[in-house]
């Protein structure tokens, strides 16, 4: 399925995940439970759109056929997207949104911490910059998970339900990848072998404080972001996100 080399695919995995997660956050505009949280979600989304753009610009330079960041965001079909299955899942209630946010933040936090020392200088620079923002995101989502998990009986139940809803998609956050092994052997990125353990340690730590139960290790199933086999939700998300550029190509403000 893959069209590009491992490094470009890896950049798309990072960029697509940030963009799709940001798009989901934007869906909360005008609907968030509190004005402060709406601003919080929009600002996190804004950081992620900026990060996606940085990854896309690098990917576009590598693809080098006239593709730019906008083409990657707005002119690719579902099967070409490499975002994590987790981030394309519907927002559900605030508990589901925060659970997704926390799982994704923890994954980004540990991944970017490793990529700060990447042999590829461009990756190291983008990771260093993004990590500052993601550290703040993780702080916020961890606090929310604790507050809701260790809150009222209802908030606790909703969190348990939210975890049940999205946990199965987290297998992608803890899977080992041959492509990434190739990239670390060639010196582009550091070895990511400890990423799964570190991610799980953060989840364990925060869930313990939140009085939430960590489910058993998730197992892989037939969907996979690496091959563009997405859940049905991504297509609908793209239909909305890409509408303007598809209907009116090259429209600008």
């Amino acid at each position: 399925m893959t069209k590009y080399d491992e490094l470009t695919e890896f950049l798309l995995r990072l960029g697509d995940s940030a963009l799709i997660h940001a798009q989901r956050l934007c869906e909360w505009t005008g609907r968030a439970p509190a004005l402060e949280e709406e601003m919080g979600m929009m600002n996190v989304g804004l950081d992620l759109v900026g990060q996606a753009r940085n990854w896309y610009e690098y990917a576009a330079e590598r693809i080098n056929d006239g593709t730019d960041a906008d083409t990657l965001a707005f002119r690719r079909d579902e099967r070409a997207f490499r975002n994590l299955l987790l981030v394309e899942q519907p927002n559900g209630d605030f508990a589901v949104t925060m659970t997704k946010q926390f799982f994704y933040d923890a994954w980004q936090f540990h991944l970017l911490t490793m990529l700060k020392d990447a042999g590829d200088e461009r990756i190291a620079a983008i990771a260093t910059k993004s990590l500052k923002e993601v550290t703040y995101h993780l702080r916020r989502s961890s606090q929310w998970v604790e507050r809701l998990g260790d809150g009222t009986e209802e908030s606790h139940q909703r969190m348990e339900k939210a975890i049940d809803t999205v946990w199965r998609f987290t297998f992608e956050l803890v899977e080992k990848s041959d492509a990434e092994l190739v990239l670390s052997e060639s010196g582009n990125i550091p070895a990511l072998s400890e990423l799964p353990e570190q991610w799980l340690a953060t989840v364990n730590n925060v869930f313990a404080k939140a009085t939430l139960t960590v489910p058993d290790e998730p197992s892989a199933f037939y969907l996979s972001a690496r091959t563009g086999m997405h859940s049905e939700h991504l297509g609908m998300l793209l239909a909305e996100m890409q509408f303007l550029q598809r209907a009116y190509p090259d429209a600008s403000w």
Binding site: E36, M39, G40, N43, L46, Y136
Partner: peptide, 9 residues
């Protein structure tokens, strides 16, 4: 602190 985010990021 009232909110992690204010009027801008």
């Amino acid at each position: 602190q009232l909110s992690e985010f204010g009027s801008t990021a």
